Amino acid sequence: MSVLSPILTPPEVKEYLTKGERFIKWDDDTTNASPVILRVDPKGFYLYWTFQSKEMDFLDITSIRDTRVGKFAKIPKSQKLREVFNLDFPDNNFLLKTLTVVSGPDMVDLTFHNFVSYKENVGKSWAEDILAIARNPFTCNACRYSFLEKILVRLKLQLNADGKIPVR
Results as ranks from 00 to 15, higher is better:
72 F>I: 05
83 E>N: 13
72 F>H: 11
97 K>C: 09
82 R>H: 11
117 S>M: 05
116 V>D: 04
103 S>Y: 13
56 M>L: 10
77 K>S: 12
116 V>N: 01
58 F>D: 08
107 M>I: 07
116 V>G: 04
81 L>G: 12
115 F>N: 00
103 S>H: 10
50 T>L: 06
102 V>W: 07
88 D>K: 10
53 S>M: 03
112 F>D: 01
96 L>Y: 10
97 K>P: 05
63 S>Y: 00
86 N>G: 04
78 S>N: 10
113 H>Y: 13
110 L>C: 15
69 V>Y: 06
52 Q>S: 14
93 N>I: 12
112 F>V: 05
81 L>Y: 08
109 D>E: 14
95 L>E: 07
71 K>E: 08
83 E>W: 02
106 D>Y: 02
86 N>F: 02
117 S>F: 15
80 K>D: 08
54 K>P: 06
108 V>F: 02
48 Y>S: 00
113 H>M: 01
56 M>H: 06
54 K>S: 15
117 S>G: 12
54 K>G: 11
64 I>Y: 04
96 L>G: 06
115 F>Q: 00
76 P>H: 01
105 P>E: 15
68 R>L: 10
54 K>D: 15
51 F>H: 09
86 N>K: 11
79 Q>N: 06
88 D>C: 10
78 S>M: 09
116 V>Q: 07
74 K>A: 03
70 G>T: 08
60 D>Q: 14
82 R>S: 11
72 F>C: 09
78 S>T: 11
70 G>F: 06
59 L>E: 02
65 R>E: 00
50 T>D: 02
104 G>S: 00
106 D>S: 03
89 F>I: 10
59 L>C: 13
76 P>R: 00
56 M>P: 02
82 R>A: 10
112 F>I: 04
113 H>C: 03
93 N>S: 15
61 I>H: 02
